[in-house]
Every structure is written in C-alpha cells, then in structure tokens.
C-alpha cells in the first residue's frame, strides 16, 4: 500500500486546468474541420465528392461543412488545403444541431473568447454536482475509451462536480455514444424515461449525431436523436476527452437554464 501511495505522490499534479485555463494539448488537438474563407468562387461541385460521409455541400456562393457528419478523416484538408483546414481546440460542441454546420450564416468565425469566458464563469458558478449516465447505442468502442478517459487523473472531471453513475435514477445527464443501432433504441429510451427531470441528453460523437460512416444501414437509425431528444451535440470520431468535457459543461448550462444559443 505504501509503495502505491509513494508512486502516486511522486508524479505530482498532472491534472489539466481546463476550462479555467486553456490546455496546451487540448489546443493542439485536431477536433474538427473548418472551411477556409475564400474569395474564389466555391461553386466547384467536386469539393462535395471529397467527403466520404457527405458532410460537404456546395452552394452557389459558399461551401458548407456539417461537423455533425464529418469524421475528421482530413481527406478534404489534404486534397484542397486552400478550402479546408483542421480546427484545433476543444470547443466544438453545440446546443443546436444546425450550429454544427460551418461557417454559420452571416459569420465566418466563432467568438471563442466569449465562449470560453462563458465556460469559465459557468464552472465557477456551478456549485451543485451533476451525475452522468453513459449508454452505448452502437458505438465502435473508441468513444467508450474517450468517455472513460474523463475519469483519469489528467481530466479528473470530479474536480468539476461531474460524477458518473450506474443508476439512471441519480442521473442528470444522459451521455449517449454510437450510431443508434436499432437494438439499442428501446433500452436507450427506457434509460431516459427512468431519469428524473430535469434531464439533458448529450450525443457524443459524429456517430451519435448523424450515424457517421455507419449510416445508412438497415440496423442503425442514423444517430441517437431517433430515440431521445438531444440537447447537446459533440462532433468527433471519436470526440476527444476535451470535446466531451466541453459538451458536459454545456449540458450543465442547459440544466441550470443558462444555455447559450450556440
């Protein structure tokens, strides 16, 4: 026992200070793809063919990318680096599905500073703890690793008052992974119904948002919204622990009635 204690102490503090402070690794992680603002005419329909999941659409005056469908394979970034680029930083989750389509109408960028200030004050203000129930609705298995990573000493979500629970009766947040396999829709709905109000649903990952590469399929519903009402969307294939953490903080905002229209 003493041997273990010493080993733990010798390591020092390894925990990130996100969201109070930016995190170097979180900032450098390729979390999403963005459309590069360009003066050139975008009406090149071949850009849409680059994407294996149909996330890119070309309109007469602009190119749109739906992060809810994007699996961040980077094929468009490699083929057309003047049109697409990787976006770093954890802040990719949204409380509106439509907001995952970038660039948003009328704006090319996102007010990241404002968003981060919101996250910081939110965490400071949040005195109550929240309990999270995870359900896998047809994931590829990698999402579960990233969700579990939130409990490791680096992310240590307990420091923010976030706890994982086995019982839906204790849960405030339902964190759902996977493309929405037909077999899991019923158990997922049952879990949701067993949770007390108020409750918030987080769709964790591109698969949970749209079915990703797995959809269309005779055995999936193309995302978990088929079974439960989703409040927070976290893109990524799989989403990084930082993106999941930001999604959970957004869910806390929704719970406390402070959801920003992002």
């Amino acid at each position: 026992m003493a041997a273990w204690l010493l080993r733990g102490l010798r390591e020092g503090v390894v925990t990130t200070r996100y969201p109070r402070r930016p995190d170097d690794y979180g900032e450098s992680f390729r979390a999403a793809v963005s459309v590069v603002p360009s003066a050139a005419s975008p009406s090149d329909a071949r850009l849409a063919d680059l994407c294996p999941t149909g996330a890119i659409s070309v309109e007469t005056d602009r190119v749109l990318l739906d992060r809810g469908r994007c699996v961040v394979c980077g094929r468009c970034v490699t083929a057309a680096p003047d049109r697409f680029k990787f976006e770093s930083g954890p802040e990719v989750a949204s409380v509106r599905r439509a907001a995952l389509v970038v660039p948003k109408a009328g704006e090319e960028g996102v007010d990241l500073d404002g968003l981060r200030e919101g996250l910081r004050t939110q965490v400071k203000a949040f005195r109550r703890s929240v309990h999270v129930r995870h359900v896998d609705a047809g994931s590829d298995g990698s999402e579960e690793w990233e969700v579990s990573a939130l409990l490791n000493p680096v992310y240590d979500v307990q420091r923010l008052g976030i706890y994982f629970t086995a019982s839906p009766r204790h849960a405030d947040i339902l964190l759902v992974t996977g493309a929405g396999s037909i077999g899991m829709l019923d158990p997922l709905r049952t879990t949701y119904d067993a949770m007390p109000d108020p409750k918030v649903v987080v769709a964790a990952g591109t698969d949970a948002t749209s079915g990703g590469l797995v959809h269309p399929s005779y055995a999936t519903a193309g995302g978990v919204a088929a079974a439960v009402p989703v409040d927070v969307w976290v893109p990524g294939s799989p989403p990084s622990p930082f993106s999941l953490l930001q999604g959970l903080i957004l869910a806390m905002q929704v719970l406390s009635g402070e959801a920003v229209g992002r």
Partner: peptide, 23 residues
C-alpha cells in the same frame, strides 16, 4: 450481442476502396 449490430458488413458494399479503409 444483437443490440450493437450496426450492419457494417452490408455497409461496405459498393464503397470505393479508400472509403472502405475508413469504415
């Protein structure tokens, strides 16, 4: 195990090879 069945093998059909790797 059926709860997680996603129909992946059928999903491969007709994909281009480079998309098959991603799946």
């Amino acid at each position: 195990v059926y709860y997680k069945h996603r129909g992946i093998e059928r999903r491969f059909s007709d994909l281009r090879i480079r998309d098959g790797v991603l799946l």
